[in-house]
Amino acid sequence: MSNDPRDEILDHLPSLRAFAMSLARNKATADDLVQDTMVKALGAFDSFKQGTNMRAWLFTILRNTFYTLRTKQKREVADVDGVMAGQMAEKPQHDGLLALNDFKQAFSQLRDEQREALLLVGASGFSCEEAAQMCGCAPGTIKSRASRGRKLLAELLQMEEGEMPDMTDQVTMDVLHNRPAA
């Protein structure tokens, strides 16, 4: 088979899915978003500048698709399933896991723009400038959305400066010192 530059789109499916899940907060919508993004990317492939960041290009298509969909629905997508919120019904095995589930649930309560900013510049490793370009806003806007999002997360999780809630309890210390938990 010939070396089709379009096939590089497939390499980005996992990260597109991860980004889509953080935006849509539900698996079915996330998968629809990724599908639509792929089809749009193929249709518009001539507009992709070879040698530039394909992941950023694809993320831009995906988030634009998401916000178009949201505008159409005239409301935030209310159908939030357990993708980001985690399975709270499962009994956590240790405090680290509990903290992560709490975190996911708190994260899913943030505004779309805050989740987007936090995901782009934090987890997926784009610079503020790149994220700003992708979202069509100023870098300062990305920074303030991320900062507001972090502040809200800290409030929801009752985190305080200088405190490491899941690092200070006895079970954690036992694990750290390789002692069996009582």
């Binding site: 991860a18 992560l100 975190f103 936090l118 934090g122 987890a123 405190e163």
Partner: peptide, 14 residues
Amino acid sequence: SVKQQIEENLKRVY
């Protein structure tokens, strides 16, 4: 610590 913990958790979720 708060900022770092949030960033770290975001990375884990992603």
